[in-house]
Nucleic acid binder design. Structure first.
Length: 421
RNA sequence: GUGGAUGUAGCUCAAUUGGUUAGAGCGCCAGGUUGUGGCCCUGGAGGCCGUGGGUUCAAGUCCCAUCUUCCACCCCA
C-alpha cells in the first residue's frame, strides 16, 4: 500500500505536544475574557476579492501566497491567509457597530499561505489575534498591546520588548513616501535590484530589505527620513499618546523607524514583538492601526486596531524561554480484573471512578496481570484497583508507595472523592 | 519562487574500497514456574534502505530525476 503523508508545510499535533497548545488557548481565552473581548469564528475560506481588497493587490501574500481555487459555481475562493479581513467582513455583514462601539473581538485558528516552509513557518499555521473596531483612542492601541503582553507574560516570556513605529494615515504616509523616494534616488546606485524596483512600486518595503549592502546604505545614512517626522499633527499626537500609555503600563518598547508592516491596510502606529532563538522568523506578534479598512470593505468609517500572533512561533519562544514544560495532569486509576469472571464488575468500577471526574483506565486487550501492571506504570497511574472475587472487594495498590491493601471498593471511592482535600 | 543540506525499524543512529539472509540502543510485545509496575536477564515482532529510472555480474552504498523534511533568502505572524 502506498503511504499518504501530510502535505508539505502541514503537521500533525500529537498528544504530548497538543498540551502546550491547550495551555496557550486557555490563557488566551482567560485574558481576552478579562479584557472583555468576544470570540468570533469566521469561515476558513472567503471570496478571493476580500483579501485582494484588504491586504492589497501588490503584496506578496495576495500576489503569490494564497491558496485560491474555483468551486463548482466558478466562484473564486481563497483559504484565509490572515484573520483581520474576515473579522472586518463579518463585522460589516452583521452590522456589529449597531451593538455598540467599540466592538472588541478575538479569534484563533488556522491560516494558509503557500510559502516555502522553514523554522517558524508552515503552509497551514495558526494565529490568534484581536481586533478593536470603532475607537481612535491611543488607549485602544495600548490596550491591545497590553493584552498581548499579559498573555505573553503569563506564558513565561520574560524578555518582552516591542518594536514601535508609526507611518500615519494616508496623508502622513504620502508625505513620508515622497521623502523616502527622494532619499532613495540619492543612494539609488548602491541598492540591490529588488530595491531599485521597490523604489517605484512600494518604497516603504526598502526599509526592511535584508541585503547587507542595502541595509548599510539605508540604515547607516544620517539622511534617511524618519517616519515620525512626516506625521500630521494629529497622527503625531496619537503616536505620542500611545507611547505614553505604554510607558504608563510598564510595557517596554523600542522605536524603530524602519518597522513597516507588509499589509496595505495599516494606517497608524504599527508594532511587532521579536524573540531570540526561534530562527530567522523572529516576529511572533505584529499589528497596528487600520483606520480605513472597515470603510473600504463597505462599512461605516470606523477606526480600528489589532494584532495577530503566530502560535507556532509563540510556542517556539515559550520553549526557548522555559524549556520543555511538563503539563501537570491528574494521574489516572487503573482497574484490573483479578480473573475473567469479575471482568464485568471491573468495568462497573471503571465507570464509577470516571463518574467522580477522576481519569480511569483498564485493559481491553486481555493481557496478563504483569502486562497490565506495566501499563499502569507507564501511564503513571496513581492507584491500581484489582477487583477481587469477593463481592464489593478490591485490592488498591498505591503505585508511588508500592503498598497495597484489600478492602471495600466504596471506601476507595470515598478516598477518590476527597482527593483534592 | 531561489540557494544549501537531508532521507536506513515507532524514535536516535550504524553498515568497512559497491559484495551473502541490512544491524545496535531505546521503545513495543512475550517470557523469567502459579494474580503485581519501575531494575535486571532471555526471546520476539517490526525495514520494497523516501520514490522512480539508470550504471554494474552485483547498489543502502555510484549517476539522474522526483518528493519530503530541515536551514537560509524572499515575505510575514
Amino acid at each position: 500500500m502506498e503511504k499518504i503523508q501530510a502535505v508539505k508545510g502541514t503537521v500533525d499535533i500529537l498528544p504530548g505536544v497538543v498540551e502546550i497548545w491547550q495551555r496557550i488557548e486557555t490563557v488566551v481565552r482567560e485574558v481576552t475574557a478579562v479584557y472583555c473581548y468576544g470570540e468570533i469564528r469566521t469561515p476558513y475560506f472567503e471570496e478571493t476579492g476580500l483579501f485582494a481588497r484588504s491586504i492589497g493587490e501588490d503584496t506578496d501574500i495576495v500576489g503569490k501566497e494564497m491558496y485560491t481555487f474555483r468551486d463548482k459555481g466558478e466562484r473564486s475562493l481563497t483559504l484565509r491567509p490572515e484573520g483581520t479581513a474576515s473579522v472586518v467582513r463579518a463585522f460589516v455583514e452583521h452590522a456589529l457597530d449597531q451593538k455598540g462601539l467599540p466592538q472588541k473581538l478575538w479569534y484563533s485558528g488556522p491560516m494558509f499561505r503557500q510559502e516555502r516552509p522553514q523554522k517558524g513557518r508552515q503552509r497551514q499555521f495558526h494565529q490568534f489575534g484581536v481586533e478593536a473596531i470603532g475607537s481612535s483612542s491611543p488607549l485602544m492601541d495600548s490596550e491591545v498591546m497590553v493584552l498581548f503582553d499579559e498573555i505573553a507574560g503569563r506564558l513565561g516570556l520574560e524578555e518582552r520588548t516591542y518594536l514601535l513605529n508609526s507611518v500615519g494615515g494616508a496623508e502622513s504616509r504620502a508625505r513620508y513616501r515622497d521623502a523616502l523616494a527622494g532619499f532613495l534616488s540619492t543612494v539609488k546606485k548602491g541598492l540591490c535590484e529588488d530595491c531599485q524596483r521597490r523604489r517605484d512600486t512600494n518604497p516603504l518595503r526598502v526599509l526592511d530589505c535584508k541585503v547587507p549592502g542595502c541595509r548599510e546604505i539605508i540604515h547607516g545614512s544620517e539622511s534617511l527620513p524618519r517616519t515620525v517626522e512626516y506625521l500630521t499633527e494629529s497622527d503625531r499626537a496619537h503616536y505620542e499618546q500611545l507611547k505614553e500609555a505604554l510607558s504608563h503600563r510598564g510595557v517596554r518598547f523600542r522605536e524603530d523607524y524602519t518597522l513597516v508592516r507588509g499589509l496595505d491596510y495599516y494606517t497608524g502606529p504599527v508594532f511587532e514583538m521579536q524573540c531570540e532563538g526561534i530562527g530567522a522568523q523572529s516576529a511572533i506578534m505584529g499589528g497596528g492601526r487600520y483606520d480605513n479598512l472597515v470603510r473600504e470593505l463597505g462599512g461605516a468609517d470606523l477606526p480600528s486596531v489589532g494584532f495577530a500572533c503566530g502560535m507556532e512561533r509563540l510556542i517556539l519562544a515559550v520553549q526557548t524561554a522555559r524549556g520543555e514544560c511538563v503539563i501537570q495532569r491528574e494521574r489516572p486509576v487503573y482497574i484490573i480484573a483479578s480473573q475473567p469472571e469479575v471482568r464485568q464488575r471491573a468495568v462497573d468500577c471503571l465507570y464509577r471512578v470516571r463518574e467522580l471526574g477522576c481519569p480511569a483506565e483498564m485493559d481491553y486487550l486481555g493481557r496478563s496481570m504483569k502486562a497490565q501492571m506495566k501499563t499502569a506504570g507507564r501511564i503513571e497511574a496513581r492507584y491500581v484497583v484489582i477487583v477481587e472475587p469477593e463481592p464489593g472487594m478490591v485490592t488498591v495498590r498505591d503505585m508511588e508507595k508500592s503498598e497495597q491493601q484489600t478492602g471495600p471498593f466504596e471506601s476507595f471511592l470515598d478516598r477518590i472523592r476527597g482527593r483534592h482535600k
